[in-house]
Design a protein around this nucleic acid. Structure first.
Lengths: 213, 213
DNA sequence: TAGATTGTTAATCGATTAACAATC
DNA sequence: TAGATTGTTAATCGATTAACAATC
């Protein structure tokens, strides 16, 4: 794999995750080689951009044959940083938080929920799958002890800012924010990605409308 | 507003939803005018692209002053098709489905969950907020009667394909798919948007990694 | 009028595509 | 070797930006 300094845009990374999903699917069918044109059909992209994306990271196939599926999965995983298990914690063990912990694909992607936090005393001490719920007071102690870099935020709007500002940025490097509060892309040197469920509904709505114009 | 035939890309629409969120926020503060440079700071974009996006839809401001906030909210809402309340139904009243119905911003965006469907007899007949849960057997009858165009899908992986294929495409025009199953962007003439929670975690993970290279 | 911010242009930048020589 | 698919180029396409004349 190339030791790239080149700037890679987020769209490329998003495509890479699509390739990975496609590859895992095809692997299950028992195949060992895959053509770029095959990934192309499954992902709804042109085959040339797939070859280009891969070559950009120094990932190559076999001319006349295609790509080795296992090798490709391994390489893309490495690019995305999925080769090592990452411990993450969840703050807010409500419906959304519970759903995320149970979300099937997250475990496959090598993310491990080692703890959840909530301020509801009825929930503290309980489990969601294999993940225990702790009091939110313990959050920074836990983060420090376990060197947690990624936090998923699924708390009510009213709690969001307070919690974000309280997180120890010596350890936390990324927040996935599912609350309706729009946070800046970077704060206290922590990367923040906002996921806005309403936005997706708005975009879908527009796409449907555009079609009938 | 311009009667555009021009092709608008999805990135523009996503920005528009950001503007809308920003505008609603600023409106609460009691302001009536907003400068593009102001939206720009809040959304992390260049001011020129904001003016360009708006002008593309024939939405104009006042030179030397800025944009009228109320007018802008109205116009963007119209572009996105949020001016009329849209009835939507949810299939799968588990944790994720429940969380989505309770998601605060969705109501503001003029989407109305008029029903939820599930196959668990313990849930059927119960309510989530103001939304009643019905047996999934009744889904197509309900869709037909209420002319439902948008379906949110939060069912287990194993159920997904069966349900998608069963939906009456004479009425349903869009599916927001939260399951881990990746569906094609269009099927039976229904627009499908996939929301993959694991993907977002992968992308965040890469962004963090890139930064420390 | 003077000051400010828009609307629009032209330049730049980056991403996608088609095509084909290279080669398994 | 013949057939197939890659890796890469050059062309195209579209999106972003800086700059400034227009004008409230």
């Amino acid at each position: 794999m190339k030791n790239f300094q080149e700037k890679i845009s987020e769209v490329v990374i998003r495509r890479l995750t699509d390739y990975l999903r496609c590859l895992n699917y095809v692997k299950q069918e028992g195949k060992t080689l895959i053509k770029s044109s095959n990934i192309s059909t499954k992902c709804g992209l042109k085959s040339s951009i797939i070859r280009k994306d891969l070559a950009r990271f120094g990932v190559y196939g076999i001319k006349g044959k295609g790509y080795d599926i296992d090798e490709l999965i391994k390489q893309i995983g490495k690019i995305l940083g999925l080769d090592k298990t990452k411990n993450v914690v969840l703050i807010g063990a409500g419906n959304l938080g519970t759903a995320i912990i149970k979300y099937p694909r997250i475990k496959n992607a090598n993310f491990n929920f080692i703890a959840a936090f909530d301020n509801n005393s009825d929930k503290i001490g309980k489990m969601i799958n294999d993940t225990q719920i702790y009091s939110i007071d313990k959050i920074n102690k836990f983060i420090k002890k376990n060197k947690i870099e990624i936090v998923l935020l699924t708390v009510p709007v009213s709690e969001t800012m307070k919690i974000v500002d309280s997180l120890d940025s010596k350890f936390v490097k990324g927040i996935l924010n599912f609350t309706s509060v729009i946070l800046p892309p970077k704060k206290n040197n922590i990367f923040i990605h906002n996921i806005d469920l309403a936005k997706e509904l708005e975009v879908l709505s527009y796409c449907m409308k555009k079609c009938t114009l």
